[in-house]
Simulated assay, not measured.
Amino acid sequence: MLLHNLLFYFENSKIELEKEVDPDKYTYLDMLETCSKQLDIYTVGMHIMYGDEMRVTCDADLLQMFQGSHNEMNIHIFVYEDKSIRPVSFKLPKHIEGSGKEMGDHGHDDSVSIGCADNTLIDKTAPQPNEVEPHPHQSPIKKKGRVENDDKQRRVRGMNKNKRVAALKNDDRLEVTFYKNRAVGPNHEAFSRHLGRIVRDFNICSVRVHSWKEIGEQEKSHMWAAIKEKFKNDNMEDHRKDALCHMRSLWNNWRSLLNRKYIKSYNSVQDILKKKPIEIQDQEDWEWLVKNHFQASSFKVNSLDFLW
């Protein structure tokens, strides 16, 4: 089993490293503890993100992060303050005085597997998909960490609507700051969303390819031009390679999402073809992707679920 190094990047330019993390043992509470080394998580709200703006809000998201990075030794995690989000409203087990001797290695009762979704403790044995955002109100916690949610309705994540970029007029561009080869600062989320939209734009990036390597230099130059059209930096050209690497990661994550959400969820090719994702406009493109890529024997062999 591959152990991972988790690299946490904070807006104060500080970095925290968790070495050789075991995916079977590492929990969201452990992640919050790492964040607490640089942020006062009890007074400041925060986003914890990786890859294609994928948020980590609970153990289910954490599991998906490890599954999507099963062949990567280093996982890069970005932590941003957000005043619109409530701070953590409960004390982490290791921050509770006198709790060390009475609890397990992670500070909680080992007989109960719990996690946290936007300050709401949840049962880790019933993971939720990353596309579903947790209910904004804290649910009452029953004895032994079990949670009973009064409102079972969830808000499903929709299409990537980059309102900040969409609001730009004429030749206006957003200033983007780079640190450690990644966008940071107030416009980092808009920048990442813009990159995510570009890799899904089939006028720029063809859907009929099996891997990122098949995308030619002309298409990549078109992508880079689309980035510079909306964002600026004094040394923008110095970050072309890093931006394209980021886009490669976003593209791979998106293709993996299509496989999980639309391919593995149905038993027959006929059912899959009827469930064309909204972002893929041409039915013929979807049919090519299903029949020539996802259903190809070489893809099935390479994408077999690994066991931990």
Rank of each mutant, 00 (worst) to 15 (best):
M247P: 07
D151T: 10
R193H: 12
P129F: 07
S99W: 07
N187R: 11
T43C: 04
D105R: 12
Y50A: 09
M236S: 08
E33L: 06
D24M: 13
I48A: 02
P186K: 14
K142V: 01
S113H: 10
Q153G: 06
R157G: 10
E229F: 12
Q128P: 11
S298Y: 15
S69N: 15
T57N: 14
D238I: 00
F299T: 09
Q67A: 12
I272D: 03
H188R: 11
R260H: 07
S139L: 03
K276E: 01
S99E: 03
R255W: 08
L258R: 06
M46D: 03
F178D: 00
A226L: 07
A190C: 04
Y266D: 07
N259H: 14
N233L: 01
N119L: 00
Q295G: 07
P134T: 07
R155D: 05
Q283I: 10
K83N: 08
V165R: 13
S303Q: 14
T120L: 02
H210N: 10
G158A: 03
F202M: 06
G51C: 06
K163F: 11
N187M: 02
D52W: 15
E33G: 00
Y9I: 12
K213R: 14
K37C: 04
D150R: 13
W251I: 09
D234A: 05
C35W: 08
K275V: 07
V147G: 03
I48C: 02
E229K: 15
F10W: 12
N162T: 13
N235S: 09
K83R: 12
D61V: 08
L174M: 04
V199D: 03
K241G: 00
V88M: 05
R173T: 06
D22R: 12
H194G: 04
V184C: 06
F10Q: 04
K230L: 06
N259P: 00
K276Q: 11
V176R: 06
D30Y: 01
W308P: 15
K169D: 02
K228A: 08
F306R: 15
S303R: 12
D59T: 12
S221A: 10
H246A: 00
K163D: 12
